[in-house]
């Protein structure tokens, strides 16, 4: 057991947890933030993506104790009063069906747009496709997801 203190969605959280606790488990079981989903348990599907210190990370491939002092943002903490432009775009462009991949997809997409903007790079449709390879969707065929990311990128 290790005591960790970290900031989750802007709130300081302190817990005693076993060292082997994965971040996904910590968020879902200990903090009841169930918007972060686990789809494959092996870091392939991307349903569990959250932001750690502002960067996208797969929470099923991150130990919670290693994040002592970190800032974590989950899908539940993305909206700041109003919906984030990415959340709006996924709604508006029908970028979801069953919705299970949606939180990870949105967190990954926000990270992509932020990164490209920070680096002054143009986010092309091709780049979106490449960047989203680590997020699997079984329902939509990705078409509307890419449209949503393109639309949100223009507003972010």
């Amino acid at each position: 057991m290790t005591n960790i203190t970290l900031t989750v969605n802007g709130k300081s959280v302190s817990r005693d947890i076993p060292d082997e606790t994965l971040l996904s488990e910590f968020l879902r079981e200990h903090l009841r933030l169930t918007g972060t989903h686990v789809g494959c348990d092996t870091s392939q599907c991307g349903a569990c993506v959250v932001h750690v210190d502002g960067k996208a990370a797969k929470s099923c491939t991150t130990l919670a104790v290693a994040l002592d002092g970190a800032q974590v943002t989950t899908i539940e903490g993305l909206a700041n009063g109003d919906l984030h432009p990415m959340q709006e775009a996924f709604t508006e462009h029908h970028g979801l069906q069953c919705g299970f991949c949606t939180p990870g997809m949105i967190m990954a997409s926000v990270d992509i747009v932020n990164r490209y903007k920070a680096e002054g790079r143009t986010l092309t449709e091709k780049a979106i496709r490449h960047e989203l390879e680590g997020n699997i969707c079984r329902c939509t065929g990705y078409h509307n997801i890419v449209k949503a990311v393109e639309s949100a990128a223009a507003k972010m």
Binding site: L33, I75, E76, A79, L83, E88, L96, P103
Partner: peptide, 8 residues
């Protein structure tokens, strides 16, 4: 949709 995009 509104629930899915907010993780709720």
């Amino acid at each position: 949709a509104a629930l899915h995009v907010t993780g709720t």
